[in-house]
């Protein structure tokens, strides 16, 4: 047996120290994130998970059940439509408003007022947004009234109750709620673009649209990609807005993965299948997150 010398102890201490500093965060992350995740993954492979103490291994039965359910595939499609449309429109509206707020052609006073107005949707919780849009898009609501008065629609439309319009209506509400994130981020980016780039373009005789396409957008691209990826991940998981406006209906017209999973868990009390559905969402989210991390590293 050899005694460890003070030098060896010091070396060991130096090696362990970073982990000791990190340990509080690692413990918190482990307990609050990794453990629940591991438990949900385990439930997805159990028979009668959680509900009965005598559970047994179910293999991939629950995954086969949800992948064989046409409502799951409809939910996946609705989730994709809802997410892609929301992200694209968030970006377009966010960019348009950011350009407007960054423009010297608008008076500083008006810009300040618009800045407050445009950011308002961000201040509301999803529950409030759902209530606002339920009232606005009610068959007797203000939107129908305006559209009928303008002659755009012939009769009142039950936006959230019709199979044809419900998914578009919830997507619209989500677009309204989410564009300020893009607007604020892009506005910060716009203010960081060097003025001399535009001055050089002016000397070269570039038009406004050309400056937008060849200077502004390329300069903003890192922000656009980062925020789009984050927005994609967040929008995919939206639950309260859809639940409180349509409940996933009419029929299954606005069923998305989050409402599908919720119904499995709290309406059917099929927690094992709900876990399998949740793990599927997790895998999609992990895929997107890895893409995001790779993009961040590349930057």
């Amino acid at each position: 047996m050899t005694a460890r010398g003070p030098k060896a102890n010091y070396k060991l201490g130096r090696q362990i120290a970073p982990y000791l500093y990190l340990s509080p965060s690692l413990i918190v992350v482990g307990l609050l994130m990794l453990l629940p995740m591991a438990m949900v993954i385990a439930y997805s492979f159990q028979e009668s998970a959680v509900l009965r103490p005598d559970t047994s291994f179910a293999g991939f039965r629950h995954y086969r059940a949800i992948f064989g359910d046409e409502v799951f595939w409809a939910s996946l499609w609705h989730t994709l439509y809802f997410t892609v449309a929301s992200v694209v429109m968030h970006m377009a509206i966010g960019l348009a408003f950011a350009l407007m707020l960054n423009s010297d052609r608008i008076s500083p006073m008006l810009r300040s007022v618009l800045r407050v107005l445009y950011i308002l949707p961000w201040l509301f919780t999803q529950v409030i947004i759902a209530v606002i849009w339920r009232l606005m898009l009610d068959p007797n609501g203000v939107v129908n009234s305006i559209l009928v008065d303008l002659g755009i629609i012939g009769s009142k439309v039950a936006w959230f109750s019709s199979v044809e319009t419900a998914l578009h209506a919830v997507t619209f509400a989500n677009i309204w709620a989410g564009y300020p994130l893009f607007m604020v981020s892009l506005l910060a980016g716009l203010q960081g673009i060097p003025k001399d780039l535009y001055e050089a373009a002016d000397i070269d005789g570039a038009t406004g649209p050309q400056k937008l396409v060849f200077i502004t957008i390329p300069q903003l691209m890192p922000i656009i990609v980062s925020i789009s990826l984050l927005d994609f991940i967040w929008t995919m998981q939206v639950f309260p807005l859809i639940w409180l406006t349509t409940g996933g209906g009419p029929i299954y017209a606005t069923e998305v993965l989050s409402t599908y999973t919720y119904k499995l868990a709290f309406s059917q009390y099929n927690l094992a299948q709900a876990a399998a559905s949740a793990v599927t969402i997790l895998l999609i989210s992990i895929g997107l997150t890895l893409f995001y991390i790779r993009h961040q590293k590349a930057r």
């Binding site: 009610d138 009142k156 109750s161």
Partner: peptide, 21 residues
């Protein structure tokens, strides 16, 4: 039947009755 059946909640039904709709 008042329109918006598929997304109408019980509270909204009561509101419609209260408001004389």
């Amino acid at each position: 039947i008042s329109p918006g059946i598929a997304s109408k909640t019980e509270q909204e039904k009561v509101e419609e009755f209260v408001n004389g709709r």
